[in-house]
Design a protein around this nucleic acid. Structure first.
Lengths: 185, 185
DNA sequence: AGAGGACATGTGCCTAGGGACATGTGAAGA
DNA sequence: TCTTCACATGTCCCTAGGCACATGTCCTCT
């Protein structure tokens, strides 16, 4: 139930509407924790029922902004400090790697080339974002500094994956035997 | 629905029972794609209904081993070659990083120290596993070579996260202001 | 005046996944 | 003989998440 704490954390920065929060989850936070608006609105309702957030203001076009409450702040801090961290690397590119031997050498090389290109580009994009932050373009409030730290993790992870994909391309080519190869050959 | 393809990929190596597959998902594959036995048995039934796998043999204690079929092999290869890769870094440690500014400097330092220790240990464990593979202790069949490549990704990712956590500890300490700090202070 | 697009919030359905509960077998050792 | 443990397979329920569908408003530009 990390969406709950993601929303709570964002609201700790200041009041926001479901729409605002959806934007956050489609940009920076979205690469790490994707969430669509239906889930967000539903979770906000639940958080309000539980008294962790409350309606701050009503605006035009039905806009409803929420504000975090005292118990909400206590809860997000409790989560950060006490809840055990989930360390699983739940990444599809890694799952696929276990089955590379089922691809032809040509398919595998093309795949790894694409992956390397994607990961390099993603790392590069984050790097330029980080550079903008370091130039002070987004101020230096504590939340901004935390975003900078999170982005650094993204840079390093995507960078590591890009290098891995290149390494794998050069690794001793697999496949002396391929059971069932007749099916596609 | 990656569990489906994970099972298919494992069965491409040779026949196995739900119990065998559960073991796989609790060790190597499990760090990347956790799955419990109820899900695995259910998915095997569905895969068999769809003709992608079939019962290979019945053994003692109700053991039921499955074998991949021709269409199963076609499907796993189609998935590997054609399905777009999901690149999201869905990692809780990263989500938490966005909210580091809500922790006290002491909490944050302790947290990052623990994270660095965990990631280093995880990387080290994978490194020694990889070394054993490189010594040929598990043979050199194609599936083993793919596992080696997947492990390399794990080593690099955990290594990158360990270095990141150390970097973050040394990063300019945050928190001149902490809204709501009175709640816990 | 009308059209298009960004703003804004929801419902409903289906699948995936986690965890508790339930049951039974075969082998090894005390 | 009895106990314990690894082997082995499943059901059930609840929550999380993805996606399609539905609705309405305000502003800007033509």
């Amino acid at each position: 139930m990390s969406l709950r704490h993601g929303l709570l954390g964002l609201l700790a920065e200041g009041p926001a509407s479901g729409y605002d929060l959806t934007q956050h989850f489609q940009t920076a936070l979205g690469t790490v924790w994707p969430a669509q608006h239906p889930k967000i609105y539903a979770e906000l309702t639940r958080l309000a029922e539980d008294g962790l957030i409350e309606v701050e203001s009503l605006g035009p076009r039905g806009r409803k902004a929420y504000r975090i409450t005292g118990s909400g702040l206590v809860e997000i801090r409790r989560w950060l400090a006490e809840e055990p961290v989930d360390h699983t690397l739940r990444q599809e590119p890694l799952l696929r790697a276990f089955f590379f031997w089922l691809m032809t050498p040509e398919q595998l090389d093309a795949h790894l080339r694409q992956e390397a290109a994607f990961f390099s580009a993603a790392a590069e994009q984050l790097r330029s974002f980080a550079a903008a932050k370091d130039r002070g373009e987004f101020g230096s409030a504590p939340p901004t500094q935390s975003v900078r730290i999170a982005i650094e993790a993204g840079i390093r992870l995507y960078g590591a994956l890009a290098e891995w994909a290149e390494w794998a391309r050069d690794a001793p080519p697999v496949l002396p035997e391929r059971p069932g190869a007749e099916i596609i050959d």
